[in-house]
């Protein structure tokens, strides 16, 4: 038995969101009598950080402290419509909707503040700490809380805003097949190193090195969390997971967590990640999306690394030991390729 080391590379050009029905998401922002703001969404946070990022976007746009914003993603019956949390679209699509809603709410807030301070709203600015003051005259100031109280109990105004992000549906050109399925693209390149055992067909991850270009990282720790976890999902998809190992034959299909194979903590490998920030012109504060796309380059990179290690080209996922072993046998043994 010999273990063969191989290295593979893959690059991806990833469209953020999708083209079905314009891929819309909506947001509603309103102030409460306490001067805090609520963002209502139907978008679901599965743990990726949608709540944190939309909270940051809303606070930054309104010009209030992030602690003053609460994001409610609880209910698709009462929240405004969202297409969903997938396709790396949350930060970009929902973020843009939140930004539009917060901008409208900010306009009403500044008008209400102007009425209280008896100045023109155009002369006011927020300090980001919960106060609104006259430009150049910070002592002419009112807190956002007092503005909220005045608007709701004296002026009879709701400090609120509506936002939607919608990309016009792109039709396919019947002549050329050309279309514009997305408005914004993220990019990544990943190098995977594997060891392939030519007696058992097992593939062990040795290390990964990657670079992700995903617009401005609005919350760098959450971006890192997505990239680390997403790469693991990519490894899992490349080497382990399938509901139908002998598709279309259902025999041997896993029925539960005990039989559904996923890599455990002992199967991970070191992963060095570089994040490149090139702000997207149409993204909220330049953000694209680091969600689904972070898993994608891993699969072809691992397949290429296996080819580099033993000379077999597996194009059917997941790349199980059985497939590797059959392919090695079919070509009469491992044929390690040149490594550059």
């Amino acid at each position: 038995m010999t273990r063969h080391r191989g290295r593979g590379i893959a690059s991806i050009n990833y469209p953020i969101g999708m083209n079905l029905g314009g891929d819309p998401s909506q947001a509603l922002v309103h102030s409460n009598p306490s001067g805090k703001f609520t963002v209502a969404l139907s978008s679901i946070d599965l743990g990726q950080g949608m709540k944190s990022v939309t909270r940051q976007i809303c606070a930054e746009t309104l010009g209030v402290p992030v602690e003053d914003v609460y994001v409610d993603t609880a209910d698709s019956d009462t929240g405004p419509h969202c297409m969903g949390s997938f396709a790396s679209r949350g930060t970009h699509r929902v973020g843009n909707a939140v930004m539009a809603a917060a901008r409208e709410a900010r306009g009403v807030m500044m008008e209400a503040a102007a009425e209280e301070l008896e100045v023109n709203a155009a002369d006011l600015e927020t300090d980001g700490r919960g106060n609104i003051h006259v430009k150049g005259a910070p002592h002419r100031s009112i807190s956002t809380k007092d503005v909220a109280i005045a608007a709701q109990f004296k002026q009879g105004k709701t400090i609120s805003g509506r936002g939607i992000f919608l990309v016009p549906l792109s039709a396919v050109d019947p002549e050329t097949g050309e279309m514009s399925p997305a408005t914004c693209y993220a990019h990544a390149c990943l190098v995977a190193e594997v060891d392939v055992d030519d007696e058992t067909g097992e593939v062990a991850m040795v290390r990964m090195d990657s670079a992700y270009e995903l617009g401005r990282a609005l919350n760098p720790r959450l971006v890192e969390q997505q990239l680390v976890g997403g790469a693991w999902m990519g490894v899992s998809h490349a080497l382990y997971e399938t509901p139908e190992p002998y598709y279309p034959e259902p025999v041997h299909g896993p029925r539960d967590f005990v039989e559904y194979l996923m890599p455990g903590p002992g199967d991970i490998c070191p992963h060095d990640i570089a994040v490149l920030e090139r702000p997207a012109p149409d993204g909220p504060f330049g953000a694209k999306g680091p969600g689904e796309m972070c898993a994608n380059p891993v699969l072809p990179a691992v397949a290429n690394a296996i080819f580099n290690a033993v000379g077999v080209r597996i194009d059917d996922l997941p790349i199980t030991p059985e497939k590797v072993l059959r392919a090695i046998k079919a070509q009469g043994g491992a044929r390690p390729q040149a490594r550059h």
């Binding site: 599965l46 743990g47 790469a231 455990g264 903590p265 002992g266």
Partner: peptide, 19 residues
């Protein structure tokens, strides 16, 4: 540490942050 959590499945984090 890896041995101690090897009976626990995590779907999201890739285990690295937990370790």
């Amino acid at each position: 540490v890896i041995e101690a959590i090897s009976g626990n499945i995590c779907r999201c984090t890739g285990y690295e942050p937990i370790i």
